[in-house]
């Protein structure tokens, strides 16, 4: 396994994903930025973000938890908690029918 990412590194990766996928200026993406207002993303963008985060977490995100996330800071925190869960070997949520 690769070295576990720290919080700063996770933030860097999140900025990279957001700027590459959604034509955002990296300097405009801050921890306190809100996804849906400041960054002007929508629910389909959110799905694409979580698909890309699987490269980092190796886990299928829990849709209930994912829905609560409003800011970049919360997104970084979510990746951290997923990495913790992966280390503990927590079971993953059930596959959902894509809708």
């Amino acid at each position: 396994m690769a070295q576990r990412l720290n919080r700063d590194q996770i933030f860097e990766r999140v900025v990279e994903i957001l700027s590459d996928s959604f034509e955002l200026e990296p300097s405009n993406i801050k921890l306190e930025s809100t996804l849906y207002e400041d960054l002007d993303l929508d629910s389909i963008d959110a799905v694409d973000i979580f698909v890309q985060l699987r490269d980092i977490t190796g886990r299928r995100p829990d849709p209930e938890k994912a829905k609560q996330i409003r800011t970049v800071d919360e997104l970084v925190g979510f990746v951290e908690s997923e990495l913790d869960a992966a280390e503990r070997g927590d079971p993953e949520p059930e596959t959902q029918m894509p809708t």
């Binding site: 396994m1 690769a2 699987r54 490269d55 980092i56 977490t57 190796g58 886990r59 299928r60 596959t95």
Partner: peptide, 12 residues
Amino acid sequence: QEKAEWHQRDVD
């Protein structure tokens, strides 16, 4: 194996 991102993409 150490290319974790590529492998983790395939969660199942």
